[in-house]
Computed example of a mutant assay.
Amino acid sequence: MSNFFEQELRKLFADGSVIHDPVFVGRACLGGLDRNRQVRAEFVTLGHADHYAALRLTLLDNDQGVLDKLTLRFKDVWGKQKIPNNPYLRDGVDPHIWVDGNRIDWYAYHPTQEDYRQLRQMASDYVETFRIQVPAKDHGPKLVYICAPLRGEVEKNIEFARQKAQEVFQAGDIPVCPHLMFPPIADPGDPAQDLAAREMGLRLVEKCQQVNVYGPVTEGMWAEIHRANKLDIPVVTDSQPKGRTTPRRKKSAKREEVK
């Protein structure tokens, strides 16, 4: 049984472009979506035993479990198919795989190469909607996130961040500096506004091609560094690229001041 399903899944996903590094097990294909997330594709029945009438795609996260599911019904993708010279199927047939004892095959209608291409494209469109896109490398200016302390001497820290942003600008890249964006409109002393500004800062990190870390690393900065690491965004400290290596936490009983 598994050999037939595997054969059909390989026609869709064997090259690894839709599902990365695919592994075929029984009726399912398992592989990568992006960092920490996977995709499972499998043939499923829809209320009629032994009639596999759809392809189901399930997105999985290492921490959160199932993120989303999509069921692609063959009749929705290909429509009802006419079967010439078959008096018993004059109205056509809804495409499905039929398991009849030890015999497994498409029932009456066998998909064409164009059918497989169409199903594959729909699966790809769905998967790509969720896949985190890694910014393409080019020779133009990078979006560089300025990761620096804020709490404590706020005015002094804002000026420090401004100077670092200016250095990035003078180097030809585009500084993204939350210290110059949020303090004028979000009060750091207001818990709700401060939390909203932090979350917005993390969203900005996701859009950047590099994160520059300046000054002593605070808890708020650790959150930004962690988000960059999760997305494989290079983190730079002391003007030296560290790739996915983050600054080492100081061993101290006293907790650092929150950013």
Rank of each mutant, 00 (worst) to 15 (best):
D94F: 07
P95N: 02
P95Y: 02
P95Q: 04
H96E: 09
H96D: 10
I97R: 02
I97P: 00
I97A: 05
W98E: 15
W98H: 15
W98Y: 15
V99Q: 11
V99R: 00
V99F: 02
D100E: 15
G101M: 08
N102A: 13
N102F: 12
N102R: 13
R103P: 01
R103G: 09
I104V: 15
I104Q: 07
D105T: 12
W106T: 12
W106Q: 06
W106S: 11
A108E: 15
P111L: 04
P111H: 05
Q113L: 13
Q113R: 14
E114D: 14
D115R: 12
Q118P: 05
L119I: 14
R120N: 11
Q121C: 03
Q121K: 14
S124M: 10
Y126S: 10
Y126V: 12
V127G: 01
E128H: 11
E128Y: 12
T129P: 03
T129A: 12
T129C: 13
F130M: 07
R131Y: 11
R131W: 05
Q133F: 06
P135N: 07
K137D: 13
H139V: 09
G140T: 13
G140A: 10
G140C: 07
P141I: 00
K142T: 02
K142G: 01
V144E: 02
Y145R: 03
Y145S: 05
Y145C: 01
I146E: 04
C147F: 01
A148L: 07
A148H: 03
P149D: 00
P149Q: 01
P149G: 00
P149A: 00
P149N: 02
L150A: 02
G152V: 06
E153S: 08
V154K: 00
E155K: 06
E155I: 08
E155A: 14
K156A: 13
K156I: 06
N157S: 03
I158F: 03
I158E: 07
F160A: 03
F160D: 00
F160I: 04
A161W: 01
R162V: 04
R162E: 08
R162K: 13
K164W: 13
K164R: 15
Q166V: 06
Q166E: 15
E167T: 11
E167K: 12
V168N: 01
F169W: 09
A171V: 01
G172A: 07
G172H: 00
D173N: 15
I174C: 09
I174R: 04
P175Q: 09
P175G: 07
V176P: 02
V176H: 05
V176S: 10
P178C: 06
P178Q: 08
P178K: 03
H179E: 11
L180D: 13
M181E: 12
F182Q: 08
F182N: 07
P183T: 07
P183K: 01
P184N: 05
P184G: 06
